[in-house]
Design a protein around this nucleic acid. Structure first.
Lengths: 130, 130
DNA sequence: ATAAATGCAAACGCTTTGCGAGTGC
DNA sequence: GCACTCGCAAAGCGTTTGCATTTAT
Protein backbone atom coordinates (compact mmCIF):
# COMPACT_ATOMS: atom_id res chain seq x y z
CA UNK A 1 0.00 0.00 0.00
CA UNK A 2 1.00 3.53 -0.61
CA UNK A 3 1.44 6.00 2.16
CA UNK A 4 -1.32 8.52 2.75
CA UNK A 5 -0.83 11.62 0.69
CA UNK A 6 -3.26 14.36 1.69
CA UNK A 7 -2.02 16.87 -0.83
CA UNK A 8 -2.11 14.55 -3.78
CA UNK A 9 -5.48 13.20 -2.69
CA UNK A 10 -6.90 16.68 -2.40
CA UNK A 11 -5.73 17.49 -5.91
CA UNK A 12 -7.53 14.44 -7.19
CA UNK A 13 -10.60 15.44 -5.25
CA UNK A 14 -10.55 18.86 -6.82
CA UNK A 15 -10.39 17.42 -10.30
CA UNK A 16 -13.20 15.02 -9.48
CA UNK A 17 -15.39 17.78 -8.10
CA UNK A 18 -18.19 19.31 -10.07
CA UNK A 19 -18.40 22.98 -10.84
CA UNK A 20 -15.01 23.48 -12.37
CA UNK A 21 -13.13 21.55 -14.94
CA UNK A 22 -10.12 23.73 -15.67
CA UNK A 23 -7.33 24.41 -13.21
CA UNK A 24 -3.99 26.14 -13.21
CA UNK A 25 -1.41 24.79 -10.80
CA UNK A 26 -1.70 28.05 -8.95
CA UNK A 27 -5.42 27.68 -8.48
CA UNK A 28 -5.04 24.08 -7.42
CA UNK A 29 -2.41 25.09 -4.94
CA UNK A 30 -4.59 27.81 -3.52
CA UNK A 31 -7.54 25.46 -3.16
CA UNK A 32 -5.44 22.78 -1.53
CA UNK A 33 -4.07 25.27 0.95
CA UNK A 34 -7.57 26.39 1.71
CA UNK A 35 -8.69 22.82 2.27
CA UNK A 36 -5.72 21.48 4.18
CA UNK A 37 -4.30 24.55 5.83
CA UNK A 38 -0.94 24.25 4.17
CA UNK A 39 0.66 22.70 1.14
CA UNK A 40 3.68 23.45 -0.93
CA UNK A 41 3.42 24.54 -4.52
CA UNK A 42 5.94 21.95 -5.58
CA UNK A 43 3.96 19.18 -3.96
CA UNK A 44 0.90 20.20 -5.88
CA UNK A 45 3.03 20.41 -8.98
CA UNK A 46 4.25 16.89 -8.46
CA UNK A 47 0.77 15.59 -7.85
CA UNK A 48 -0.37 17.19 -11.07
CA UNK A 49 2.62 15.85 -12.95
CA UNK A 50 1.80 12.38 -11.76
CA UNK A 51 -1.80 12.64 -12.84
CA UNK A 52 -0.69 13.91 -16.21
CA UNK A 53 1.84 11.13 -16.58
CA UNK A 54 -0.87 8.60 -15.81
CA UNK A 55 -3.12 10.16 -18.39
CA UNK A 56 -5.81 11.11 -15.91
CA UNK A 57 -5.59 14.79 -16.69
CA UNK A 58 -4.25 16.67 -19.63
CA UNK A 59 -2.54 19.94 -20.23
CA UNK A 60 -4.59 22.68 -21.79
CA UNK A 61 -2.92 25.74 -23.17
CA UNK A 62 -5.00 28.87 -22.89
CA UNK A 63 -2.30 31.14 -24.21
CA UNK A 64 -1.93 33.11 -21.00
CA UNK A 65 1.48 31.78 -20.18
CA UNK A 66 0.24 29.44 -17.53
CA UNK A 67 -0.36 25.75 -17.75
CA UNK A 68 -3.88 24.53 -17.16
CA UNK A 69 -5.20 21.06 -16.66
CA UNK A 70 -8.48 19.30 -16.97
CA UNK A 71 -9.65 15.74 -16.55
CA UNK A 72 -9.05 13.91 -19.76
CA UNK A 73 -12.16 11.81 -19.89
CA UNK A 74 -13.91 13.67 -22.61
CA UNK A 75 -12.75 15.89 -25.37
CA UNK A 76 -14.17 19.35 -25.75
CA UNK A 77 -13.23 22.88 -26.68
CA UNK A 78 -13.08 26.08 -24.74
CA UNK A 79 -14.08 29.63 -25.23
CA UNK A 80 -12.39 32.44 -23.37
CA UNK A 81 -13.68 35.92 -22.81
CA UNK A 82 -11.38 38.57 -24.27
CA UNK A 83 -12.31 40.91 -21.48
CA UNK A 84 -12.46 39.01 -18.20
CA UNK A 85 -10.56 35.91 -19.22
CA UNK A 86 -13.25 33.56 -18.07
CA UNK A 87 -13.12 30.22 -19.81
CA UNK A 88 -16.23 28.25 -20.55
CA UNK A 89 -16.45 24.77 -21.91
CA UNK A 90 -18.00 24.40 -25.33
CA UNK A 91 -20.28 21.40 -25.37
CA UNK A 92 -19.62 18.82 -28.04
CA UNK A 93 -16.85 18.49 -30.52
CA UNK A 94 -17.29 20.63 -33.57
CA UNK A 95 -14.31 19.29 -35.38
CA UNK A 96 -14.94 15.70 -36.32
CA UNK A 97 -15.21 16.31 -40.04
CA UNK A 98 -12.66 19.10 -39.99
CA UNK A 99 -10.02 16.67 -38.81
CA UNK A 100 -10.68 14.54 -41.80
CA UNK A 101 -10.43 17.51 -44.12
CA UNK A 102 -7.18 18.62 -42.53
CA UNK A 103 -5.70 15.16 -42.85
CA UNK A 104 -6.36 15.04 -46.53
CA UNK A 105 -5.12 18.56 -47.19
CA UNK A 106 -1.87 18.31 -45.26
CA UNK A 107 -1.01 14.63 -45.40
CA UNK A 108 -0.76 14.56 -41.63
CA UNK A 109 -2.33 11.80 -39.64
CA UNK A 110 -4.43 13.83 -37.23
CA UNK A 111 -4.26 12.53 -33.69
CA UNK A 112 -5.84 15.36 -31.75
CA UNK A 113 -6.53 19.04 -31.74
CA UNK A 114 -6.86 21.92 -29.41
CA UNK A 115 -9.21 24.73 -30.09
CA UNK A 116 -9.71 27.93 -28.23
CA UNK A 117 -12.35 30.39 -29.20
CA UNK A 118 -12.14 33.94 -27.98
CA UNK A 119 -15.01 36.27 -27.58
CA UNK A 120 -16.97 38.40 -25.19
CA UNK A 121 -18.98 36.66 -22.54
CA UNK A 122 -22.54 37.79 -21.89
CA UNK A 123 -21.62 39.56 -18.64
CA UNK A 124 -18.84 41.60 -20.21
CA UNK A 125 -20.99 42.36 -23.20
CA UNK A 126 -23.75 43.86 -21.10
CA UNK A 127 -21.22 45.64 -18.89
CA UNK A 128 -19.68 47.10 -22.00
CA UNK A 129 -22.96 48.63 -23.04
CA UNK A 130 -23.31 50.39 -19.71
CA UNK B 1 12.20 60.47 -40.19
CA UNK B 2 13.20 57.76 -37.83
CA UNK B 3 16.74 56.62 -37.47
CA UNK B 4 17.82 53.61 -39.45
CA UNK B 5 17.13 50.44 -37.58
CA UNK B 6 18.79 47.47 -39.21
CA UNK B 7 17.60 44.97 -36.65
CA UNK B 8 13.99 46.01 -36.76
CA UNK B 9 14.09 46.21 -40.54
CA UNK B 10 15.54 42.76 -40.79
CA UNK B 11 12.78 41.39 -38.59
CA UNK B 12 10.21 42.92 -40.89
CA UNK B 13 12.03 41.47 -43.87
CA UNK B 14 11.91 38.04 -42.34
CA UNK B 15 8.20 38.25 -41.79
CA UNK B 16 7.69 39.49 -45.32
CA UNK B 17 9.77 36.71 -46.79
CA UNK B 18 8.27 33.66 -48.38
CA UNK B 19 8.97 30.16 -47.20
CA UNK B 20 8.15 30.56 -43.58
CA UNK B 21 5.26 32.15 -41.82
CA UNK B 22 5.75 31.18 -38.21
CA UNK B 23 8.58 32.47 -36.04
CA UNK B 24 9.63 32.27 -32.44
CA UNK B 25 11.61 35.20 -31.08
CA UNK B 26 14.52 32.87 -30.78
CA UNK B 27 14.40 31.89 -34.42
CA UNK B 28 14.02 35.48 -35.48
CA UNK B 29 16.99 36.43 -33.37
CA UNK B 30 19.08 33.68 -34.86
CA UNK B 31 18.17 34.68 -38.39
CA UNK B 32 18.86 38.33 -37.73
CA UNK B 33 22.26 37.49 -36.29
CA UNK B 34 23.00 35.40 -39.32
CA UNK B 35 21.99 38.24 -41.63
CA UNK B 36 23.56 41.16 -39.82
CA UNK B 37 26.42 39.59 -37.94
CA UNK B 38 25.15 40.64 -34.56
CA UNK B 39 21.97 41.63 -32.84
CA UNK B 40 20.71 41.49 -29.32
CA UNK B 41 17.83 39.30 -28.32
CA UNK B 42 16.13 42.18 -26.58
CA UNK B 43 16.32 44.30 -29.68
CA UNK B 44 14.60 41.62 -31.67
CA UNK B 45 12.10 41.27 -28.88
CA UNK B 46 11.34 44.96 -29.01
CA UNK B 47 11.00 44.93 -32.76
CA UNK B 48 8.54 42.07 -32.50
CA UNK B 49 6.64 43.80 -29.71
CA UNK B 50 6.27 46.87 -31.88
CA UNK B 51 4.98 44.90 -34.80
CA UNK B 52 2.51 43.14 -32.56
CA UNK B 53 1.37 46.41 -31.02
CA UNK B 54 0.79 47.80 -34.50
CA UNK B 55 -1.21 44.75 -35.42
CA UNK B 56 1.12 43.67 -38.19
CA UNK B 57 1.85 40.33 -36.63
CA UNK B 58 0.05 38.27 -34.09
CA UNK B 59 0.97 35.93 -31.34
CA UNK B 60 0.38 32.26 -31.95
CA UNK B 61 0.51 29.82 -29.11
CA UNK B 62 1.74 26.41 -30.10
CA UNK B 63 1.71 25.01 -26.61
CA UNK B 64 5.45 24.50 -26.45
CA UNK B 65 6.05 27.22 -23.92
CA UNK B 66 7.45 29.62 -26.45
CA UNK B 67 5.74 32.52 -28.10
CA UNK B 68 5.41 32.41 -31.86
CA UNK B 69 4.37 35.07 -34.29
CA UNK B 70 3.02 35.21 -37.78
CA UNK B 71 1.88 37.97 -40.07
CA UNK B 72 -1.70 38.74 -39.31
CA UNK B 73 -2.99 39.31 -42.79
CA UNK B 74 -4.92 36.15 -43.14
CA UNK B 75 -6.44 33.79 -40.71
CA UNK B 76 -5.59 30.13 -40.79
CA UNK B 77 -4.97 27.16 -38.57
CA UNK B 78 -1.94 25.05 -37.89
CA UNK B 79 -1.11 21.44 -37.54
CA UNK B 80 1.87 20.26 -35.59
CA UNK B 81 3.60 16.93 -35.77
CA UNK B 82 3.55 15.09 -32.45
CA UNK B 83 6.91 13.59 -33.24
CA UNK B 84 9.15 16.22 -34.80
CA UNK B 85 7.23 19.32 -33.80
CA UNK B 86 7.06 20.68 -37.30
CA UNK B 87 4.19 23.04 -37.82
CA UNK B 88 2.39 23.31 -41.11
CA UNK B 89 -0.25 25.77 -42.11
CA UNK B 90 -3.69 24.39 -42.77
CA UNK B 91 -5.16 26.07 -45.82
CA UNK B 92 -8.53 27.68 -45.36
CA UNK B 93 -10.60 28.26 -42.31
CA UNK B 94 -12.61 25.27 -41.25
CA UNK B 95 -14.45 27.03 -38.52
CA UNK B 96 -16.77 29.59 -40.00
CA UNK B 97 -19.97 27.75 -39.12
CA UNK B 98 -18.54 26.34 -35.92
CA UNK B 99 -18.10 29.85 -34.58
CA UNK B 100 -21.74 30.48 -35.11
CA UNK B 101 -22.68 27.28 -33.34
CA UNK B 102 -20.43 28.10 -30.43
CA UNK B 103 -21.89 31.56 -30.12
CA UNK B 104 -25.39 30.22 -29.84
CA UNK B 105 -24.48 27.47 -27.41
CA UNK B 106 -22.44 29.56 -25.01
CA UNK B 107 -23.90 33.02 -25.36
CA UNK B 108 -20.47 34.39 -26.10
CA UNK B 109 -19.91 36.79 -28.91
CA UNK B 110 -17.14 34.99 -30.77
CA UNK B 111 -14.39 37.32 -31.92
CA UNK B 112 -11.69 34.88 -32.93
CA UNK B 113 -10.33 31.43 -32.38
CA UNK B 114 -7.11 29.57 -32.36
CA UNK B 115 -6.90 26.02 -33.44
CA UNK B 116 -4.02 23.65 -33.33
CA UNK B 117 -4.24 20.18 -34.71
CA UNK B 118 -1.72 17.60 -33.70
CA UNK B 119 -0.78 14.58 -35.67
CA UNK B 120 2.01 12.75 -37.38
CA UNK B 121 3.55 14.32 -40.43
CA UNK B 122 4.18 12.17 -43.49
CA UNK B 123 7.93 12.04 -42.89
CA UNK B 124 7.60 10.85 -39.33
CA UNK B 125 4.93 8.41 -40.31
CA UNK B 126 7.13 6.71 -42.87
CA UNK B 127 10.13 6.85 -40.55
CA UNK B 128 8.04 5.20 -37.90
CA UNK B 129 7.31 2.27 -40.16
CA UNK B 130 10.98 1.65 -40.79
C1' DA C 1 20.36 68.97 -28.85
C1' DT C 2 17.04 65.57 -29.39
C1' DA C 3 15.01 61.36 -30.06
C1' DA C 4 15.41 56.75 -31.54
C1' DA C 5 17.75 52.15 -31.78
C1' DT C 6 20.71 49.21 -29.61
C1' DG C 7 23.37 46.26 -26.25
C1' DC C 8 24.02 44.67 -21.79
C1' DA C 9 22.52 42.96 -17.68
C1' DA C 10 19.29 42.06 -14.57
C1' DA C 11 14.40 41.31 -13.10
C1' DC C 12 10.41 38.59 -13.53
C1' DG C 13 6.87 34.85 -13.67
C1' DC C 14 6.10 30.36 -13.82
C1' DT C 15 7.80 25.72 -14.12
C1' DT C 16 10.85 22.21 -12.67
C1' DT C 17 14.30 19.83 -9.82
C1' DG C 18 17.65 18.53 -5.91
C1' DC C 19 17.84 17.34 -1.46
C1' DG C 20 17.07 16.46 3.13
C1' DA C 21 13.54 15.51 6.78
C1' DG C 22 9.59 13.26 8.28
C1' DT C 23 6.66 9.09 8.45
C1' DG C 24 3.65 5.12 7.44
C1' DC C 25 4.52 0.36 6.28
C1' DG D 1 14.92 -0.23 7.00
C1' DC D 2 12.51 1.35 2.98
C1' DA D 3 10.03 3.76 0.13
C1' DC D 4 7.25 7.40 -0.48
C1' DT D 5 5.43 12.16 0.55
C1' DC D 6 6.44 16.58 1.58
C1' DG D 7 8.58 21.27 2.21
C1' DC D 8 12.16 24.30 1.25
C1' DA D 9 15.15 26.42 -1.62
C1' DA D 10 17.21 27.01 -5.74
C1' DA D 11 17.78 26.27 -10.66
C1' DG D 12 15.85 26.79 -15.36
C1' DC D 13 13.86 28.95 -19.15
C1' DG D 14 11.75 32.21 -21.81
C1' DT D 15 10.00 36.81 -21.59
C1' DT D 16 10.35 41.54 -20.27
C1' DT D 17 12.45 45.85 -18.60
C1' DG D 18 15.90 49.52 -16.85
C1' DC D 19 19.65 51.96 -18.08
C1' DA D 20 23.47 53.77 -20.34
C1' DT D 21 25.52 54.33 -25.01
C1' DT D 22 25.61 55.32 -29.57
C1' DT D 23 24.16 57.80 -33.59
C1' DA D 24 21.30 59.89 -37.28
C1' DT D 25 18.74 63.96 -37.75
Amino acid sequence: MARPSPVSDQVKTLFAAEGRHLWSIDELHESVVQALGAADYSTVFRAVSGLERDGLIKRIDLGDGKVHYEVSDEHHEHIRCDVCGRVVEVPGCVLEDASFAVASSTGFKVTSHQLLFSGICPDCESARQA
